[in-house]
Write a protein that binds this DNA or RNA. Structure first.
Length: 198
DNA sequence: ATGACGATTTACT
DNA sequence: GTAAATCGTCATA
């Protein structure tokens, strides 16, 4: 295991969102088992100027405090009262931007997911921000934790060829006005685990 | 103290 | 296609 270095995250957020495609999210369960998947879909959230971002306008609250940290930690929050979402905080301390991890292609842990979600096809197990957190047992305990060590980390994968990356509008941010149209969602073309095809 | 709502998913008509 | 599930967060008072 060789986690991506902190310097990977402390850069332009759109660049990090694109380059996270093809990298590997790893999770060590309390019983020692390893789960992992390759990132196939991300979204960039650009901080105070981005109406779709939790930190729009400089909002700093107990929840969003994590986004103000130096890049390289996880920002995990609860949505709709029942699903957790995993983000990688980017940029430097005080610049509250992040990348939402929206979907993974299953790697390690397929027996576990087959048993847990027998009704879903393998490509669906980690398809969607809420689903992947459920499958990897990611919750508020991961919030603020470094992605470079510990029980949740991101390590180098094969990456995604730039030509295979598709950009489009972000999902579920219709309330964000102009920002709702910004092409900050990225996915790997042809990957079956990508959420909401088309 | 109150109430509206959300970076979603699932079940059902 | 529509609606339910479910609750922490945040703005308002």
């Amino acid at each position: 295991m060789t986690p991506l270095p902190l310097s990977f995250y402390r850069r332009d957020t759109e660049t990090v969102a694109r380059e996270l495609l093809g990298q590997r999210v790893c999770r060590r369960l309390p019983d020692g088992r390893l789960l992992s998947g390759v990132i196939v879909e991300t979204e960039a959230y650009l901080g105070i100027a981005d109406r779709a971002c939790h930190t729009f306008g400089g909002r700093r609250t107990p929840r969003t405090d994590t986004m103000y940290a130096d890049g390289g930690v996880a920002y995990v929050y609860l949505i709709y009262g029942m699903y957790w979402c995993l983000n990688a905080v980017t940029q430097r301390e005080g610049d509250p931007e992040a990348v939402l991890i929206r979907a993974l292609a299953p790697e390690q842990g397929q027996e576990i997911w087959q048993a847990a979600y027998p009704r879903l096809k393998p490509a669906q197990w980690l398809s969607g921000p809420g689903r992947l957190c459920r499958a990897l047992q990611i919750d508020r305990a991961c919030n603020g934790q470094p992605l470079t060590q510990g029980d949740l980390w991101i390590e180098a994968g094969a990456g995604a060829a730039p030509a295979a990356i598709v950009a489009g509008p972000r999902v579920g941010v219709d309330y964000a006005g102009e920002a709702a149209h910004w092409p900050l969602r990225f996915h790997v073309a042809g990957e079956p685990s990508v959420s909401r095809p088309r």
